[in-house]
Design a protein around this nucleic acid. Structure first.
Lengths: 261, 261
DNA sequence: CGCAAGTTTGACGCTGCTCAATCACTGTGG
DNA sequence: CCACAGTGATTGAGCAGCGTCAAACTTGCG
């Protein structure tokens, strides 16, 4: 089903390896190190919070299976979802520098998560410059994504917001090999969660999704999304995947080499 | 005027030193290194773009004087401002890993800017672990700020958005010693720019500012802002400065030490 | 003095919100 | 096998926050 999952046996089945490998070609030693990092994931049920706002961060979380999300709540009960984490995603690798989380991370589905102690994370980065470089790249992509979300929430209308979000998730799922043979992919989000992501209400999300279905852009339901008209969806969301830095490689130039030195 | 600017002569007048020093107490060697980094700033006029979306990033920019901002434009002409940079701020220290900028950086006022070559940046970080740690901290704060902006733009109403933004800018200006003796500070933003920051229109920003003046929260005009009722402003914006990690220090615990090792 | 940029004001209307009810689906226990 | 409950999706009616368009006013500046 997952078209690449059989190349090189278990190697490519590790979503972290798969993700980082897109950017910096990794050697066997690096791959082994990453696989050893991701050993012993723990399974958590949907709805569980990995860490809450106010808590002291001591681990870097690596998601192996399932979906998670960052969010922040307001006293009024409103909340904003600030990122989705999918398999292969790692939380900010230096988050433990702070003594207190300023947001929470929850699980949208049952998930397998590795909690990597800060010291171990640093050790791997010191030992493998290529991994360090790839992790910085991943961090920069996270930040770029956040900026794009700000643009999305601040400047686009409901139809554009949802189109854009779906395009982004499709590219990201594809990058870790989680698109199904029929082109659909898992999207374990309720309409209320889509609303908290885009700054809309669930009622308005519902009506907008109906328009998108009527316009033959997508099929959505049962925790799955199928994009029927990729070009149309990209156009209606003004989607340009450049900020994900995934469809073309980043620079291999001298500045990159300097980091490895 | 700037209350601390006379302590230790020129030392504390360097806004980068002042900022980083809040987090990691720096020694003389570190301070000297930072001062040498910030030598030879170049003066640019207001309105100039330091770098544009699509260009190849090769320098890290350090702002010594004046205001800058990150932004992203849409074909429709709408645009979103994603961050303000004030003296002492440094762009993402690893941005040169990408081969193409995904946003632009412009100047809001005449400004003094140092363009630090990537290699030099890396060298300083390698040589001074304390500086490296402090820079990571600054990067994490930038990210946290971005998340808070997303919350602001996505979930709050016009009055709350502007209140929150003003509270944040006041804290940041204070942290680099740029609050005037009368409690006001420079805010070189037009109402149109406030609109592009908050996802509103300039007309609505105008009407909202008038309400805030009527409510005796602020005085604003002539490129300056004076907060008349700090508690009231914080309350109306739901402002909690925790995400700026500036009013209390971050952890000095073992994980922090590990990075310096 | 006179432009240019920015601010302010007015009238009007749409996008998206609120409240509230109903429907659909899924899993559960009897 | 079905009634039931809970969660999420859908629908409707009414409304308001904020947007649009356009004009007038104010301020800084050459």
């Amino acid at each position: 089903m997952l078209s690449l999952s059989r190349e090189r046996g278990t190697l490519v089945s590790n979503p972290l390896v798969r993700k980082l490998n897109r950017f910096v070609p990794l050697g066997d030693a690096e791959i082994a190190a990453l696989e050893s990092l991701s050993r012993n994931p723990k399974t958590h049920p949907a709805g569980h919070d990995l860490i809450r706002e106010g808590a002291k961060p001591e681990y870097v979380f690596l998601l192996m299976k399932g979906w998670a999300y960052r969010y922040k709540s307001l006293p009024s009960g409103r909340r904003q979802i600030m990122a989705y984490l999918i398999p292969g995603d790692l939380c900010d690798i230096h988050i433990f520098l702070f003594d207190e989380m300023d947001h929470s991370i929850g699980l949208l589905s049952a998930a397998e998560v590795v909690a990597i102690p800060a010291a171990q994370m640093l050790e791997v980065m010191n030992r493998f410059p290529k991994i360090e470089r790839a992790l910085w790249w991943a961090t920069l992509v996270d930040e770029a994504t956040l900026r794009e979300w700000l643009l999305n929430v601040g400047q686009r209308n409901a139809y554009e917001k949802l189109s854009h979000l779906f395009c982004e998730m499709a590219v990201r799922m594809e990058a870790v090999g989680l698109i199904d043979h029929d082109g659909s992919f898992s999207l374990p989000l309720t309409q209320a969660e889509l609303a908290d992501t885009t700054g809309l209400t669930s009622v308005h999300v519902n009506r907008t999704l109906q328009r998108m279905r009527r316009d033959k852009l997508i099929e959505i339901g049962q925790q799955r999304l199928m994009i029927l008209d990729r070009a149309g969806l990209r156009e209606s969301g003004g989607f340009n995947p450049n900020y994900l830095h995934v469809e073309k490689k980043a620079s291999q130039a001298s500045t990159g080499a300097a980091l490895s030195a």
